[in-house]
Design a binder for these strands. Structure first.
Length: 453
RNA sequence: GGCGCCUUGGCGGAGUGGCUACGCAGCGGCCUGCAAAGCCGUUUACACCGGUUCGACUCCGGUAGGCGCCUCCA
């Protein structure tokens, strides 16, 4: 078990995980008012892979990624489409499961819904009201920010001049502009509501995460994550609620991924469509999307566009080519095993996926240079293991079946033509195979067919 | 205005006080009947100005530029 260290937004320190305790990870998932985009996929990928790596290292890890299915935006989007908000939320939740499922990373250990956590949410709010950290006002309940010492410690900003609220919030009901809603009374036009001690209504934006995280992982748990745009106010408010209610920290480490950066001009023209996760997967394939998302360090912003995705396709092609020639199976020699060790070392060091991938490519080049070096034997085995850790294990899979009889016949015919030195005929057949989806690769041991990318 | 981040070779993107990151693309070669795959070479980068140091791309200060958040956002 390696010592895994993660940079903590709250303290600014890099903190080592405790291998003796369960590593509870809570990552803020999407609000389901539309299909998710690449930006939503980044935390899903980062935290899924982190949990996978921790488990591979022998940690007991539990990953929870929630679905926020109660929100102003859902009401708005549903109204625009003329369907009920529940219908829209269900549809988009299903789409989220489908789209992220296609990434091939499996599911988180828990995926709670806000609508499935109303009881704990109401209980948590009640506790806050009883303890004087929150107050009822006209059917709404607000958290009293100034009553919580330490507000602003995560986002490192002074409480002066802060104001917050969801859209056209009934700000006049607040005692202080800093306060934020825990519970919102039912309003005309909203087609869902739940009973509460303060009358029918629905949870405010931040409280559902506090409740779901505690329900799934207890409090405190180890890592709370999400996009860096959530630092303020979302995570700041989660800290305030949970710590005010329980008198102990919510999470030990706050881990935030950088934004996917889009060029507004390009987005409106050529690249707007592929920003949707499902469109990106359709266009570039799931492995390329994952490879793209891990191409930069998780904390840094990552440029989005056709070019970086196309590059990701080229990268995974190189890996796949290598694995075709060097299938997993052989026991890794010392150099191959060392590369795998360095790969894991990089991941253990604040989950440095680009550095890890550089080790993978280093191994590929070394093994291509010296295919007979016993120290590099089993490089394919080592590489497959490395890639599996970052969700690219499918690159090592042979694919369904081999060439069909028609393709094999054509290959035979081409071999015959080449034996006759009839290059025109041989190239004709190669073109024909290309039309059928096969690429011919001539090697020392004869010609081979590989599927065309 | 407040808080924070960033500026690396054609592009993307790591990293370190003194040693080739890595990938993609281009060009030149090797291999090949020609390709593909692979290999080699290649223009040897660290915004600018000072400072610390035997030595800085890597530390400190400043300048310029870019970005994120600061009522919604992964």
């Amino acid at each position: 078990m390696r010592e895994v260290r993660i940079k903590d937004t709250l303290s600014g320190e890099t903190i080592a995980l405790d291998g003796t305790e369960e590593i509870g990870i809570y990552a803020c998932g999407p609000t389901v008012y539309s299909r998710i985009h690449i930006g939503n996929a980044r935390p899903f990928v980062v935290f899924s892979l982190l949990a996978r790596f921790l488990k591979a290292e022998g940690y007991r890890a539990k990953l929870a990624i929630n679905v926020t299915d109660i929100n102003d935006k859902i009401y708005t989007a549903a109204a625009e489409r003329g369907i009920s908000s529940g219908e829209l939320a269900e549809e988009m939740t299903a789409a989220y499961f489908e789209d992220t499922g296609r990434l091939g990373l499996g599911r988180p250990d828990a995926e709670p819904l806000a609508t499935g956590t109303i009881g704990p949410i109401v209980d948590l709010i009640e506790t806050l009201v009883e303890d004087g950290h929150a107050y009822e006002s006209g059917g709404d309940v607000y958290f009293s920010v100034r009553g919580f010492d330490g507000y602003g410690k995560l986002s490192h900003r002074p409480t002066e001049e802060m104001e917050q609220g969801e859209g056209d919030d009934a700000g006049s009901l607040k005692r202080d502009p800093l306060d934020f809603a825990l519970w919102k009374t039912h309003k005309e036009g909203e087609d869902t509501s739940w009973d509460s001690p303060w009358g029918p209504g629905r949870p405010g934006w931040h409280i559902e995460c506090s409740a779901m995280a505690e329900a799934e992982l207890g409090q405190p748990f180890t890592i709370h994550g999400g996009g860096s745009d959530l630092v303020f106010p979302h995570h700041e408010n989660e800290i305030a609620q949970s710590e005010a209610a329980r008198g102990k920290p919510l999470a030990r480490i706050w881990m935030h991924n950088g934004m996917i950066e889009t060029d507004a001009e390009k987005m409106s023209k050529s690249e707007g469509n592929i920003f949707q996760l499902h469109e990106a997967i359709d266009t570039y394939g799931p492995e390329a999307v994952v490879a793209y998302l891990i191409s930069g360090h998780y904390r840094q912003p990552l440029a989005f566009g056709d070019a970086p995705l196309t590059e990701a396709v080229a990268r995974i092609d190189r890996l796949r080519n290598f694995l075709r020639d060097n299938p997993a199976g052989l026991e890794p020699g010392p150099e191959a095993a060392a590369a795998a060790g360095r790969f894991r070392d990089a991941l253990a060091d604040d989950f440095n996926t680009p550095r890890a991938m550089s080790e993978a490519f280093d191994l590929v080049r070394s093994a291509n240079q010296s295919p007979d070096d016993p120290a590099l034997a089993g490089a394919g085995t080592a590489l497959a293991g490395m890639l599996d850790l970052v969700g690219l294990g499918s690159l090592a899979e042979a694919g369904e079946g081999g060439p069909d009889p028609e393709a094999l016949d054509l290959l035979e015919a081409r071999n015959a033509a080449r034996a006759d030195r009839d290059w025109g005929r041989a190239d004709e057949i190669r073109d024909r195979l290309a039309e059928l989806g096969w690429e011919v690769r001539d090697g020392a041991e004869g010609a081979r067919l590989v599927p065309r990318g």
